[in-house]
Amino acid sequence: KTVEVNGVKYDFDNPEQAREMAERIAKSLGLQVRLEGDTFKIE
Rank of each mutant, 00 (worst) to 15 (best):
A18V: 02
E23Q: 09
M21H: 10
V33F: 12
A26G: 06
E43S: 12
N6F: 15
Y10P: 00
G30Q: 06
R34I: 13
I25D: 01
M21W: 15
D38R: 03
R34N: 07
N6A: 08
P15N: 08
Q17A: 12
K27N: 13
A26D: 01
E43T: 12
G7T: 02
E36R: 03
K1H: 15
V33H: 04
R19M: 08
G7M: 03
V33A: 05
L31R: 04
D11C: 14
E4M: 13
E4W: 13
I42R: 00
R24F: 12
K9Q: 09
R24S: 10
D13W: 07
Y10S: 03
N14W: 07
G37R: 05
Q32L: 12
G30E: 03
K27M: 13
P15E: 14
K41G: 01
V5F: 15
D11G: 10
Y10H: 07
F40L: 10
M21A: 13
L35H: 07
L35F: 10
N14H: 08
D11A: 14
N6D: 10
A22L: 05
N14D: 14
E4I: 14
G37A: 06
K1T: 14
V3E: 01
S28Y: 14
Y10V: 07
K27L: 14
G37M: 04
V5S: 04
D11M: 15
E16V: 10
R24L: 13
F40Q: 00
A26E: 00
K1Y: 15
I25C: 14
E20S: 08
D13V: 09
E16Q: 12
E16L: 09
M21K: 03
T2I: 12
A22I: 05
E16I: 10
G7V: 02
L29T: 05
N14F: 08
F12E: 00
R34V: 13
G37T: 03
G30P: 00
L31F: 08
A18G: 02
G30T: 01
E43P: 05
N6I: 06
K1N: 10
P15G: 09
N6V: 04
N14V: 07
L31M: 13
K27H: 12
G30R: 05
F12C: 14
M21T: 10
E16P: 01
L29R: 03
G30A: 04
V3P: 01
N14T: 14
T2K: 13
D13C: 14
N6Q: 08
K1P: 08
K27E: 13
G7Y: 03
E4C: 15
R34C: 11
F40S: 02
L35W: 08
V5P: 00
P15V: 12
F12V: 05
M21L: 10
A18K: 00
L35E: 11
R34T: 11
A22K: 00
A22C: 06
A18Y: 02
V5K: 01
V8Q: 10
K1W: 15
Y10K: 04
F12I: 05
K27Y: 10
K27T: 11
G30W: 02
E36S: 05
K41R: 10
T39W: 03
G7L: 03
I42G: 02
D38L: 05
I25P: 00
N14L: 08
A18H: 00
V3M: 03
T39H: 06
A18M: 03
D13A: 12
I42Q: 00
E20M: 10
G37V: 04
A22E: 00
Q17Y: 08
N6R: 06
R19V: 05
V3H: 02
T2G: 05
R19L: 11
I25M: 08
I25T: 06
L29F: 06
S28D: 13
R24D: 07
A22V: 05
K27I: 12
A26W: 03
V8R: 10
V33I: 12
D38Q: 07
L31A: 13
D11Y: 15
A26H: 01
N14M: 07
V5R: 01
Q32M: 12
V3Q: 01
D13P: 10
S28R: 14
P15T: 11
K1F: 15
A22H: 00
V8L: 10
V3W: 02
L35M: 08
D13R: 08
V33E: 02
N14R: 07
V5A: 04
N14P: 03
F12R: 02
Y10M: 10
G30H: 06
E43C: 14
L35C: 11
K41A: 03
V5H: 09
K41Q: 05
L29I: 04
A26F: 03
Y10L: 08
K41V: 15
R19N: 04
K9P: 05
V5D: 01
L29K: 04
V5Y: 14
V5W: 15
P15R: 07
K9H: 07
Q32W: 08
E36F: 06
E23F: 13
N6H: 11
M21S: 06
F40D: 01
Q17P: 02
P15L: 11
V33Q: 02
L35R: 06
G7N: 05
R19H: 07
E36L: 04
E36N: 05
Q32K: 14
L29Y: 06
K9A: 07
F12P: 02
L35D: 06
T2N: 08
A22Y: 03
K41F: 14
E23I: 12
R34E: 05
F12A: 04
T39I: 14
A22P: 00
L29Q: 06
G7W: 02
R24N: 10
I25G: 00
E43M: 11
E20P: 00
L31P: 00
G7I: 02
V8E: 08
R24V: 09
K27V: 10
I25N: 00
K1V: 13
M21I: 09
V5M: 07
I25A: 04
A26Q: 01
I42F: 10
L31K: 05
I42Y: 02
E4D: 08
E16D: 13
T39N: 07
S28C: 15
K27D: 10
E4F: 11
S28L: 15
K9V: 11
L31S: 07
K9I: 10
N6G: 10
R34P: 03
G7A: 03
T2R: 13
V8D: 05
E4Y: 12
S28K: 14
Y10E: 02
T2D: 03
D38S: 08
R34L: 09
G37L: 05
D13G: 08
E20D: 10
K9C: 12
F12W: 04
D38H: 08
I25E: 04
E16S: 09
E20N: 08
I25Y: 06
K9F: 09
A18N: 01
D38G: 12
E23N: 10
E4S: 10
A22W: 04
E4V: 13
K27A: 14
F40E: 01
L35Y: 12
K27C: 14
N6S: 07
Q32Y: 10
V3D: 01
V8F: 11
V33L: 11
S28F: 14
P15A: 13
Y10Q: 05
L31I: 07
D13K: 09
F40K: 00
E36T: 05
E43V: 14
R19A: 09
K1Q: 09
E23Y: 14
L29E: 04
R19D: 01
D38K: 05
V33W: 14
N14E: 09
F40I: 08
F40N: 00
Q17I: 11
Q17W: 07
K41P: 01
A22S: 03
A18D: 00
G30D: 05
N14Q: 07
I25H: 02
E23H: 12
E23M: 10
Q32H: 12
L29V: 03
K41M: 09
E16K: 09
V8H: 10
V5N: 02
R24T: 11
D38W: 04
F12T: 02
E43G: 14
D13I: 08
V8T: 10
Q32A: 13
E16H: 10
R19G: 03
I42P: 02
D38A: 07
D38T: 09
S28H: 14
K1M: 15
Q17G: 06
A18L: 04
E20W: 08
E23D: 11
G37E: 06
Q32V: 15
E23C: 14
K9N: 05
A26I: 02
D11K: 15
E36Y: 09
T39P: 01
K27G: 09
E23T: 08
M21C: 15
Y10T: 05
Q32C: 14
A22T: 00
T39S: 07
A26M: 02
D11T: 15
E16A: 11
S28V: 13
L31T: 07
I42K: 01
V5I: 13
V8N: 07
E16W: 10
M21R: 04
K9D: 03
L29W: 06
K41W: 08
L29M: 11
G37D: 07
R34D: 04
P15K: 07
V3S: 00
T39K: 06
L29A: 05
G7D: 03
L31C: 15
R34W: 09
A22G: 01
A18C: 09
R19Q: 08
L31W: 12
L31Y: 08
D13S: 11
K41Y: 15
L35A: 05
T39D: 02
V3A: 01
T2V: 12
E23L: 11
E20R: 10
S28W: 15
